[in-house]
Design a protein around this nucleic acid. Structure first.
Lengths: 248, 248
DNA sequence: GAATCTATCTGGTATATACCAGACTCGTTT
DNA sequence: AAACGAGTCTGGTATATACCAGATAGATTC
């Protein structure tokens, strides 16, 4: 006998009833961050539905950002979101580390490449200009949060890749190259992760994500760095303060 | 005989091969904005897979933001994203309309309510303060893009709801109440749509979305408006310019 | 010409089943 | 104590099937 009989006569689909039930439990705090959710099979049994129906309910929870799944390990309740203040921009890592937040940075890969059409356009450079490229994985409290790939002008920072890249790149560029105050153009959009990105973060392919791209400029307004981040969608929260001038 | 035989011996799952195939066709421009994608059944037939497998491929495309589906109508190629500049903030509608973009606003519902705990906190007001609430649906070129609900201080704008709300609320507040320059706090996060939101936008439940919340303040820094938007994830792109002071 | 009917298209929901592969636990062996 | 292995847990992939309900287009009827 099912522990939670689903109301098949109601017009609301069974799997949504299960979604609502689970959402309640999460929001009431009955299930806390990183706690395992019921597995697909056990959920199916307790609601007396097929595994596929239970799965659909859990996938909806994933989409809502209330849970995430790790390959062949299970589903877990999402932790509180990480607030990324856009005005802090590049110095996110520096700020987080200064606050004492456990922010670990792992270098995934690095190299020097010629700028392709997209990078050349973003950085306002001729194509094939040499760029240092490094990809890093950012973790908070042991949980992977986002991947960042930065491209910086090789001519301006020739020996960049010889430094320890497991630190705030803002601080790196400051300490070794004395960069002055800068501006940045940022764009944010939703985009599911590609299988390779998801696997780096230990997540299922097509995990919902948020992509953040930024072009960083020096005091003279010339671009020297292009950064591309892909965040776990359920983990990211972007904040900004806008000051609006008198509209004409 | 399948038109596109899937390679079952390869280590990459069949449905991902289909995703890659479809993504190619979309990115190559073979399928243009709002063009119907192959239906689940026809895709299943042409790749000689079950409908469920075809469906998984199409759902992955949805998650990537390359397609969207309308209930019982079909799946369609996503149009170009709408760029929302955070610095323009509240005046998005005004700007779009000034540019001549076809931005239609439909009033969904309105009323006056007491502030609940969440609203009171956001607006820094005592609970139960009277607020005007109105929900509007924004369309570009006939396609629903996002829903916005705004809450404004009823005491300060007593007869707000008697005006035509199918226009930029920035302009409304300016023309009738003479609001001076203002600042705004914005937060952005990924969140699947609730079934009711999705149905308003003509989309499937749990459609990936991006929520944007903003608190708008007058020249004195006192909050007078709280706005909450839910965008179709595949349609939204947020841009911002940040100016970073010299870090200590 | 307008309204209606109908066949067929679409996705939506749901079940039952099968096998795979990685992760994990626990007991046994070395 | 460390290494190994078996059994069992997890989600991942895939098939086949069934019926529902809204959308749509075309033919028929009024």
């Amino acid at each position: 006998m099912p522990q939670h009989p689903a109301d098949t006569t109601a017009e609301t689909p069974i799997f949504r009833q299960i979604v609502d039930h689970l959402r309640d439990r999460v929001l009431k705090g009955e299930l806390t961050a990183h706690t395992p959710l019921p597995s697909e099979r056990s959920l199916a049994e307790s609601f007396d539905v097929s595994r596929m129906t239970a799965r659909r309910a859990l996938e909806a929870l994933d989409a809502e950002g209330l849970s995430y799944r790790e390959d062949r390990k299970g589903r877990f309740v999402s932790p509180k979101r990480i607030i990324y203040n856009i005005s802090d921009m590049v110095s996110f890592a520096a700020k987080a580390q200064a606050r004492g937040d456990a922010l670990e940075i792992e270098l995934v890969s690095q190299g020097t490449i010629p700028a392709d059409a997209r990078l050349a356009r973003a950085l306002e450079l001729p194509e094939a200009t040499a760029l240092h490229r490094y990809t890093r994985l950012f973790r908070t409290e042991g949980h992977a949060a986002f991947i960042e790939t930065e491209y910086v002008l090789a001519s301006r920072f020739p020996d960049l890749l010889t430094h320890d890249l497991r630190q705030s790149s803002t601080r790196l560029l400051e300490q070794h190259y004395g960069i002055s105050p800068r501006t940045g153009d940022i764009t944010i959009r939703m985009r599911a992760m590609q299988p390779d990105e998801a696997s780096l973060l230990g997540l299922a392919p097509y995990h919902p994500g948020i992509a953040l791209e930024q072009v960083i400029r020096d005091g003279d307004g010339s671009a020297f760095c292009f950064g591309s981040q892909i965040w776990r969608g359920e983990l990211a929260e972007f904040s900004a303060q806008a000051i609006v001038g008198e509209p004409v």
